[in-house]
Amino acid sequence: MTELLYGRRAASTVGANAPVLDLNRSDELEIKDMHVYYVLFETPMDAALARLPTSLHPAIPAHFGITFWRAKESAIGPFELAFVGLACRSGIKPRHFIHGAFASTQEAQAYFSAKYGFPCRLAEVRQRELYDRIEGSIACDGRTILEVITTHMQPVVGAGATVKYSPALCAAETSAGRKLVQLETSYQFARVMRGTPKATVFDAEALGDAAIKPAFPMSGAHAITTAMLHPPRFMVDPGTPAESGGAQKLPR
């Protein structure tokens, strides 16, 4: 009997206290001059399999992403957002299953919770571009729980001057039941840089999963973009095994 590799977590444990989403909305949010800082680290496979529900395959090697957004202006005001997610697959498409999210303003916290299911906490989120590094940090109640620095930055030029962000999947209550809903974002890139990341502060438990920790650096990328946040288009049933499920497109 062939074994298949997918998450080992019971679906019933996914998304407790998940926000309620309206899947029938059509509004979009454009954010100009948005700075995106995206850091990837490998993490032990056992931790990934324990985190993921049976509806998701792990990525191999197991890895997770930390994403920082800094919007100087937007329809929900200026904000900074950070989210942490484990790389996974539903079908062939890479995604990040989000287990921690932090917003700098109440407006952003409410927006990303209500629109996409991000488990947002209010926090001090900071993304800084210095002469020799990119820094990202999250502090909750005055205590820094994450600080990640990327150095040796090099511009990424030509046709490859993009970053392929894996879409975020968040647990949410919907009219179809509890689902994993995908954040749909498209980007126009004005500038991309890449370097080597290092986590100088990493409180895994405070970030949402005590077992998901950096084991090996992959890349750190900083981009200046115009981002368009679209309504959800895909969702995954957390209780349907990966082999018979996969991401489903929402009817429009």
């Binding site: 590799l5 990525a59 490859g160």
Partner: peptide
């Protein structure tokens, strides 16, 4: 094949680079 290949991590999704822009065999 898609199940197997889908779990690998392509350079283009892990490491922004000018010399790895293709989606590879999967798509």
């Amino acid at each position: 094949f898609g199940y197997m290949a889908g779990q690998t991590t392509e350079i283009s999704e892990a490491y922004p680079s000018s010399n790895y822009t293709a989606i590879g065999l999967l798509g």
